[in-house]
Design a protein around this nucleic acid. Structure first.
Length: 720
DNA sequence: ACAATCGGACTCTCAATAGT
DNA sequence: CTATTGAGAGTCCGATTGTA
């Protein structure tokens, strides 16, 4: 009810409001406001005048708690796959709840986890609550806070953090040379930038070939700053300079050696070396080891991707560990901090965090190190399916989620897959069983299936319905994510079954391996589609990341054991198709894939020939065997092994872009595959299985030394 | 019958927000 | 800057309950 204001009249200064005495207030009776009042006199009570309470700050949305409660129940419905009509379909919720505190009970934690993976209702649907751990400073600030002034808590927190940061900054520790060597002041970075037209060209290449996959750069806001910066390169901020050099590096990396020469008149190797050095220098100038600047971390991330093809994965894994630690200090792994940093910044932080985590998980596997990053211990939400243009700096409310694929489709789907892996039972069973209690319950398990196989099918249904079915197969980006995802899911099926077989008897395990063959075949088919399509040309620099090594290994193992199995002919066909597709783009020439492939394929073919010899049957070798034999023969014609320089050029120039273990996505554990990103890279294999797989002893192969000559393979093949 | 309790409709106040 | 809004603070009617 609105108050009745007396219009017009000049009011005398308001007399102090006299309140009913405490007893009358308590009794809810009329007080005559004399002290002592009639009621107190009558009841012979002490009459105490009441004092006005300081008015609390009005809460903008008093129904907020109710809304939160409602959203919690909606999340539970959602996580249990019960259909309902959500209260809000727009993205208003997260903004409202940005500063809401909630309980710490397990239910809430779980519903938060659910939020983290279900961005369908709102952009920042996650409850930014007390998921994050508290540090010492935080706890001390909590102790001194004014209980009546809850609103100022966050600002005081900021002040405290700033004070600590300033204190460290003022201590003037010279830590710049901890990595990347001593600052080379002699090198003037302004001279290392490309000419203006080349900057634009590199920027465009970066947007098309790289950023469309990662979306770690917000194009509308950065583009203007780059144009502005080009006007006066001398006054570039160190962070923007680092970002620029990382963009140049990635743009160059995404080209083939020939394309690079045509576009810029310099070799890919030279340009990469120059821009990577520039990036190192600019990162040092930015004080990147103590940075809190998201863009500085983005530059470091892009730099690491750009060197990933020429770096030992163990070294790269260590550097990624550093980047992850920087990210954690900046709290970009924490949803509450992402929400608090604003709509645009929060979204960019989420994209960067997932990009870092996914790369780290992948590289850790390759480096044969069990990363603990892809686990349910943090709550950064999966990035939202929105276009960059939907995100503006001044935004207060998150934009509506698109139902159709947006520019961010690859980073959204890849993050969804990563989010699945970090919560799924069969992954946690052997990576971090103790974390299963905090893992989000994965929804949409089809009826009649056990949890583990159901999880993968549930993921497959969800991803297909929510994303892939809505993609346009003629759109290069969509085409790429469709087949990359299907390959990944086939691999998940493969790994899940391996995981399940680990707890069965050796005989059962081996006999069941045939059941997995269709998934291995599908993996290769997906990869062949990517490799043979003209649509994916601009993304071919990532091809090594998707090499279907687990598929090859499984097929070769099964063909070696049962050369005449029902899937044998089909398996040889898909392997031949994939091999040809990969050779067509030189990804197998001289490179590590070749060495791995020859081992696998000849092992399987030897078994097939042995069977044929027993029955006196003449068999025609499949295309893949012929192809590999021809290449082997040609290699023998070459005088000496490929030189280190040639190999390095080949590696850098994209003919075989990735160093041996990196390229394969393999670890060496038990001589068997450590699958690619997000996979259980430490899954147990039966001892009997292991013994039989020892022929695939990757560690024994002379990948790196001896310029990649397959010494083990040579011994094997020539002893025949 | 009277006193005490208390649900809840109502009024008042003023911070937040909209409008100029 | 003023006007408006509406949430929160405060008031107290009157139904209900307790007690002598």
């Amino acid at each position: 009810m609105s108050p009745q204001h007396t219009p017009g009249a000049h009011r005398p200064p308001k007399p102090q409001r006299v309140l009913a005495c405490v007893l009358c207030q308590q009794r809810k009776v009329k007080c005559n406001r004399k002290f002592p009042c009639d009621n107190c006199i009558k009841s012979k009570a002490q009459c105490v005048p009441a004092s006005q309470l300081p008015r609390q700050r009005r809460r903008r949305f008093p129904e907020r708690e109710l809304l939160d409660q409602l959203h919690k129940y909606e999340d539970l419905l959602r996580s249990n796959n019960i259909s309902f009509e959500p209260l809000q379909k727009d993205g208003t919720r997260a903004h409202e709840s940005a500063n809401v505190e909630s309980g710490d009970d397990l239910d809430m934690e779980q519903s938060r986890c659910t939020n983290a993976s279900t961005p369908s209702t709102s952009v920042t649907a996650a409850q930014p609550t007390r998921w994050e751990t508290r540090d010492l400073w935080h706890m001390m600030r909590q102790g001194f806070r004014d209980p009546e002034d809850s609103d100022s808590e966050s600002s005081r927190e900021d002040v405290g953090e700033i004070a600590i940061r300033i204190a460290w900054d003022q201590s003037c520790l010279n830590d710049d040379c901890l990595l990347f060597g001593v600052r080379q002041t002699a090198v003037n970075l302004t001279t290392m930038h490309p000419e203006t037209t080349h900057i634009f060209k590199l920027w465009q290449l970066f947007l098309d070939n790289v950023n469309s996959l990662f979306r770690v750069v917000h194009v509308p806001s950065l583009q203007g700053r780059i144009i502005e910066a080009i006007g006066d390169m001398n006054s570039l901020s160190p962070v923007l300079e680092a970002l620029l050099f990382s963009i140049y590096s990635m743009a160059v990396l995404s080209l083939t050696a020939h394309e690079c020469l045509m576009a810029f008149g310099s070799s890919k190797k030279d340009l990469l070396a120059k821009y990577q050095l520039g990036c190192q220098q600019a990162l040092v100038n930015s004080g990147f080891l103590r940075t809190s600047d998201r863009e500085c971390l983005t530059a470091l991330f892009l730099y690491l991707v750009s060197v990933s093809t020429s770096t030992d994965p163990r070294a790269l894994s260590s550097m990624l560990g550093l980047a992850i630690r920087l990210a954690q200090r900046m709290k970009i792994d924490t949803e509450a901090a992402c929400v608090a940093s604003g709509v645009l910044e929060g979204e960019m932080r989420r994209r960067l965090w997932w990009a870092l985590v996914l790369l780290d998980a992948r590289v850790s596997q390759i480096a044969d190190y069990k990363s603990q990053t892809l686990t349910p211990t943090w709550d950064c939400r999966v990035p939202s399916n929105v276009n960059d243009a939907d995100l503006r700096l001044e935004m207060k409310n998150p934009p509506a989620i698109h139902g159709q694929p947006t520019e961010a489709i690859t980073c959204v789907v890849r993050s969804e897959l990563g989010d699945f892996i970090r919560n799924c039972t069969w992954h946690l069973n052997h990576t971090a069983p103790n974390l299963k209690v905090i893992a989000r319950k994965l929804s949409s398990i089809p009826q009649g299936l056990n949890m583990e196989s159901g999880e993968v099918l549930g993921l497959e249904n969800m991803i297909e319905d929510k994303y892939l079915q809505r993609c346009d197969p003629d759109n290069p980006l969509h085409f790429m994510i469709i087949w990359e995802t299907r390959q990944f899911i086939a691999k998940c099926h493969l790994m899940q079954i391996y995981s399940a077989l680990a707890s069965t008897s050796p005989t059962t395990a081996v006999s069941n391996l045939d059941a997995v063959v269709p998934y291995a075949i599908h993996m290769l088919e997906c990869d062949t589609r990517i490799m043979t399509s003209p649509l994916t040309k601009r993304y071919r620099w990532t091809a090594n990341y998707n090499f279907p090594a687990p598929g090859y290994m499984h097929l070769a193992e099964c063909l070696g054991r049962r050369p005449l199995s029902e899937h044998a002919d089909q398996a040889w066909e898909v392997m031949s198709d994939n091999c040809e597709a990969r050779f067509a783009h030189s990804f197998l020439d001289r490179g590590p894939f070749f060495e791995m492939l020859t081992r696998l394929v000849f092992h399987a073919w030897t078994a097939r020939e042995a069977v044929a010899a027993q029955s006196g049957e003449a068999v025609e070798p499949p295309r893949i065997v012929t192809k590999l034999k021809n290449v082997m023969h040609q290699k023998d014609q070459v005088v000496g092994p490929p030189s280190t320089e040639l190999l390095a050029e080949g590696l850098i120039a994209g003919t075989s872009d990735i160093p041996p273990r990196m390229a394969m996505g393999l670890g060496e554990r038990n001589g068997f595959v450590a699958p690619e990103i997000g996979d259980p890279y430490d899954f147990p294999v039966h001892t009997s299985l292991r013994a039989d797989m020892n022929f695939l002893d990757w560690a024994a192969m002379d990948w790196v030394t001896g310029t990649g000559q397959p010494s083990a393979w040579n011994d094997y093949i020539y002893s025949k």
